[in-house]
Amino acid sequence: MQRVNMIMAESPGLITICLLGYLLSAECTVFLDHENANKILNRPKRYNSGKLEEFVQGNLERECMEEKCSFEEAREVFENTERTTEFWKQYVDGDQCESNPCLNGGSCKDDINSYECWCPFGFEGKNCELDVTCNIKNGRCEQFCKNSADNKVVCSCTEGYRLAENQKSCEPAVPFPCGRVSVSQTSKLTRAETVFPDVDYVNSTEAETILDNITQSTQSFNDFTRVVGGEDAKPGQFPWQVVLNGKVDAFCGGSIVNEKWIVTAAHCVETGVKITVVAGEHNIEETEHTEQKRNVIRIIPHHNYNAAINKYNHDIALLELDEPLVLNSYVTPICIADKEYTNIFLKFGSGYVSGWGRVFHKGRSALVLQYLRVPLVDRATCLRSTKFTIYNNMFCAGFHEGGRDSCQGDSGGPHVTEVEGTSFLTGIISWGEECAMKGKYGIYTKVSRYVNWIKEKTKLT
């Protein structure tokens, strides 16, 4: 034993070699072989497995989906700052455009905790909710729209109204504003409101030439003092309507412009014939205590009207009353817009006519005020429907199939267009061939041609 100890002390290297040989010859039971080890760690190889990531292109799944990435790591994937920024906006807080917040056709661009709407022409605001041009839906104005110097929408209202708090709607500024039905039992019968379409306001006024200088022999019209197929109006439903009495009662109609003036057809009036105007009328054979009678003290036909040349060209006249009318729910003026808007309103496509005229061709006159909704007829169809001249200051309205029309005794009465609950004068009943005849239409004086003249002559002093 002493000898062994001496050998170990003198030859430590020998001992180490012996131990190493023993270990190498022993069977290893701690580690699995290569094949079995792979069965336990069965993990798919990654895209760049075996390579240094710093030297390969980034992978979106590896960089940002398996674990949260930084902007720089995302930049490695896209290799483009702009594309990385677009991805980053949604990656950080989701897609803010998912709810489609942009209105009126706006395009949404996502941002971090926010979004941006790219608005089409005519709109602005956070969600493109603000109209900035009158060309689109009248700028959301209830009545009139004008573009300011910086191309912003400025709404306005006709006389007797003021802008509401929203700067879009119009509200009454006087007790009985024009064009409004205020009798409670008839307010439910107000005709369907007309909503502004998209309009090209630059070209809204037709490029028409008034044929002022045409000389033409007097034409022989049949029954051209021209509501057939209409309905009984309720008291106060058309408070701007008046009836004219002269040699015979209810020979023509008219509309209240203001307390002192009536507008009617020029062919209705004769110099030297006494005319009485009755406002607030409903049943011409009954006294309903809503009527107001006034005498006409002055007749002003349009300066281009000449019955000797043509009885229905420039067929418009103004009547001055001896005493002002007292405005109330049964006696209310009709609204008159400017030339541009009167023309736009007419193009809405349908209007209402009213009167006490004959209820059928050569038949009896109506006792109760009649009204009828009539569609506008395109000019080409209008011209083809008659052998008589249709001037540019006239328009056609009615039904091709016949059966409904204005008729004798309705002449001078109103053709009105309702705009968001307020009625505007767009025409004056003038003439036609018979009444409600198939293929024939009622012919009306186009008020847009005469609004400046009306307003100039009827100013209240």
Rank of each mutant, 00 (worst) to 15 (best):
I112E: 08
R140E: 06
G427I: 02
G409E: 06
V199A: 05
G349K: 08
T426Q: 01
Y22G: 05
E82M: 08
K440I: 03
K459F: 07
G94C: 03
K152I: 07
K339S: 15
K274N: 12
D322C: 02
Q143L: 01
L319K: 00
F251V: 07
V248M: 07
D131M: 14
T422N: 03
H303Y: 12
T158E: 04
L32H: 15
T225L: 11
N5L: 11
V374N: 02
C108N: 00
A397M: 02
L52C: 04
T29H: 13
V77N: 15
L24F: 10
I15D: 02
V153H: 06
V228E: 10
N100V: 04
C407G: 04
I7E: 11
K45L: 14
C102Y: 00
G421T: 06
T422D: 00
G432K: 12
S187V: 10
E281M: 12
H302C: 02
N100W: 05
W356R: 10
E281Y: 07
F251T: 07
W431A: 07
D405R: 15
K362W: 04
L23D: 03
C108F: 00
P101D: 01
W431I: 08
S220H: 07
V353Q: 04
A308I: 07
T190G: 11
G246T: 07
V243I: 14
N452W: 05
I262N: 02
A380W: 14
Q241M: 14
Y441E: 00
N113M: 07
R140H: 12
C252N: 02
I7V: 14
I256D: 00
E67G: 04
N222K: 11
S182G: 10
Y161T: 00
T264F: 00
S49C: 04
N166G: 04
H400D: 14
C170Y: 00
E434A: 14
T16M: 14
N203P: 10
S182W: 07
T276F: 05
D322I: 02
K274Y: 05
R384M: 10
G160M: 02
R75I: 15
N38M: 07
S365A: 14
N127D: 06
A279S: 03
L346I: 07
K234G: 08
S114G: 09
N127M: 06
V353S: 06
G94E: 11
T271D: 05
Y47L: 12
D315M: 00
M65S: 08
G179L: 01
D378V: 03
P120W: 02
G413R: 04
A250M: 07
L318A: 03
N452Y: 08
A436I: 11
D111C: 04
R358M: 08
N36L: 08
S11L: 13
V257K: 02
S25K: 06
M394N: 14
S70A: 15
V368D: 04
V30T: 15
Q185M: 08
V447I: 10
I262L: 03
W240N: 00
P12A: 14
C252G: 00
I443E: 02
S70N: 15
D378Q: 09
S107M: 07
E54R: 15
I17E: 02
V257T: 00
T389M: 06
G439V: 03
H282L: 11
A149P: 11
T85M: 06
S204C: 05
C108P: 02
A233V: 08
C134E: 02
C141Y: 00
V199C: 05
D95M: 04
K68F: 05
W240G: 01
K387T: 12
V30K: 15
V243G: 04
E116T: 11
G413P: 00
P239N: 02
G21Y: 13
G349F: 06
E129C: 02
S385G: 13
A192C: 04
E418W: 06
D232E: 13
W118Q: 15
A380T: 12
D200I: 12
E35Y: 08
V331N: 02
I112T: 08
S182K: 06
C134F: 02
K146R: 12
F345A: 04
V153R: 06
F221S: 12
A9P: 12
E61D: 15
Q408E: 15
G50R: 15
T458F: 00
V368M: 12
C155W: 00
I210D: 10
F251Y: 10
N135P: 04
C145T: 02
E285I: 11
E401F: 14
G403E: 13
E193F: 07
V447H: 00
A26C: 11
N138D: 03
Q370E: 04
R226F: 06
Q185I: 11
F71L: 15
S156N: 05
E433N: 14
M8W: 12
K234T: 13
I336W: 01
A366S: 05
A173P: 00
I316D: 01
D232L: 09
Y444C: 03
C396G: 00
I299P: 02
S148V: 07
G160T: 09
E165V: 13
F238Y: 03
R404A: 09
T218Q: 08
Y391D: 12
E67Q: 03
D212S: 09
G272F: 06
A173M: 11
A192M: 13
C157E: 01
C157N: 00
Y312S: 04
Y161R: 04
I256L: 04
K137P: 04
V416W: 15
N452G: 14
D232V: 06
P175M: 10
D150C: 04
S329D: 14
E433Q: 14
E288S: 10
L130D: 13
F238W: 09
R298K: 12
A37I: 07
C145P: 01
C252R: 01
S70W: 05
E165I: 09
V377L: 09
F55Y: 09
K446P: 03
D33F: 05
L103T: 09
E286F: 10
A266D: 02
I443V: 08
L41S: 15
G246R: 05
T16E: 04
E142K: 06
L14I: 12
E281I: 13
L327S: 03
E10L: 13
C28L: 02
S217E: 12
S204L: 12
G179M: 01
D223W: 07
I136C: 03
E259C: 04
T81K: 15
T445D: 02
T290I: 06
L325K: 00
K293E: 09
N100D: 11
K51R: 11
R294E: 01
M437Y: 09
T264K: 01
P239C: 01
A307Y: 10
N113A: 10
H314F: 07
T158L: 08
L24G: 04
S114I: 04
H289W: 10
E420F: 13
N283Y: 09
Y341L: 05
A207E: 12
I7F: 08
T186P: 10
Q408T: 15
S406M: 14
D212G: 13
G402W: 14
N42S: 11
E10C: 11
Q219M: 12
S11G: 12
N127R: 07
E35V: 11
L325P: 00
K339F: 08
N222P: 08
C435E: 03
A436L: 09
N113D: 10
Q2S: 07
L130M: 14
V368S: 06
P197L: 09
N151E: 08
G427Q: 01
N42K: 08
C28F: 02
C128N: 01
T389V: 10
V419H: 10
E208Y: 13
S430E: 03
Q237A: 08
Y330E: 04
A164N: 08
T215V: 11
S184M: 05
D110G: 05
N5D: 07
N452T: 13
S354E: 02
H303I: 05
G94H: 09
K347Q: 14
G442Y: 05
K446Y: 02
R162L: 08
L32Y: 15
G412W: 08
P333R: 03
D95Y: 05
G439I: 02
T332A: 13
K45T: 08
F251S: 09
N80C: 04
P12K: 11
A397T: 06
F196V: 11
E285V: 10
V243L: 07
G439P: 08
V227M: 10
M8H: 12
T225S: 08
I309K: 11
S255C: 08
T276E: 11
H34R: 11
L189H: 13
E79M: 13
K440W: 03
K39V: 06
N452M: 07
Y115V: 02
V242W: 01
T264Y: 00
P44W: 08
F221Q: 08
C157D: 00
N313T: 10
N38F: 07
N5P: 09
S156R: 07
T426I: 01
F121Q: 15
C117S: 01
V368G: 11
F388R: 12
G398W: 03
K438H: 14
T458L: 03
T461V: 12
Q96W: 06
Y352H: 11
A266R: 03
N42D: 13
T417P: 00
